[in-house]
Amino acid sequence: MASSVTEPRPSDSSPAAGAAAGSGGPTPGEKRRKGLSEKNRPLWLLIPGGLLMTVVILVPLAMGIWMSLIDLDQYTLRRWVSAEFIGILNYIEAATSSDLLRSIWLSVSFAVISTVVTIPLGVAAAVVTQNAYRGRALVRSIFLIPYVLPSFVVASVWRTMLQPDGIVNVALTNIGMDGGLWLNGPNSYWTLVWVEIWAAWPFIYLLALSGLQAVDHEVHEASALDGALWWNKLRYVIFPYLKGPVSLAFLLATLNHINNFTLPYVLFGAPAPSDVNVLPILVYVTSFQSFRFGLSAAMAVVSLVLIAIPLFIYLRAVRLDVHEGGKK
């Protein structure tokens, strides 16, 4: 996934030519550049990929939208083709008499907090392991442990540790603090944030590290010759290189947090405490415990739209799809 950010361009100010290359096709790039003209591009080569995308993404998407407009539940499941078309009633019900709005707020705030905290952690870790020193390989490997552990395992371990009589509360009692309840009540929200941060920061670290690796040796030399001290060098020379990869990391990590089902489900179970009734849990319960497939599809569509708006604005703003000179 990092392949699209191989050329971070801190000083790029060129217009976002070909920003609409959503389907992954070659972008026109700058008009005067040499190579294949627009006419002769072998667009037919996109057919297999296009077909795959249609089957894997577009058809289910259309199905999901259709489901959100019909009254599909356990009673109508068997004759779902003839399930009653109820227009936007599912959407109205989702907005007015379900926990959807609150779940969206919980999901978005949880995702943003988690990402905002993990970015400095990940960047700092990348900087620390950038220069060679004895034991660096070991440190790098240890940093990756939370990332390679399956979500299920991470959640199970934390759930065990955060029990009312678990190891965390025992330790807190030993130092004279009252731990309280971590897996239910208002603290549960922060538990979710904490465990997500614990599990997700190495992703930022990986992308930041890839950004650091792209800094040419000459840049380091030049800034040393100019007498830049470490902070100034970091601030004005190195960080601009990280803008691209870290922006991408910000985007992907936030979406990943919003979509994380396993972590809250294993940590808190279903039905979830109201403080952690995040979107994936709400959709799951509506679908598989209340069997309201139409209603849950409407919730999923709403969340998709809500995510898509900032995502679109963001993609336009950071121009992740612009490559220097169009080269890959």
């Binding site: 993404i57 999901g64 992907l252 979406l255 990943n256 599809a297």
Partner: peptide, 21 residues
């Protein structure tokens, strides 16, 4: 880490599509 936009919607509709097939 496939995090395309319509992922969750796709998940909800995934059962339906397999059913169609």
């Amino acid at each position: 880490m496939g995090m395309s936009k319509p992922r969750r919607l796709g998940a909800v509709a995934a059962a339906a599509i397999s059913v169609l097939v």
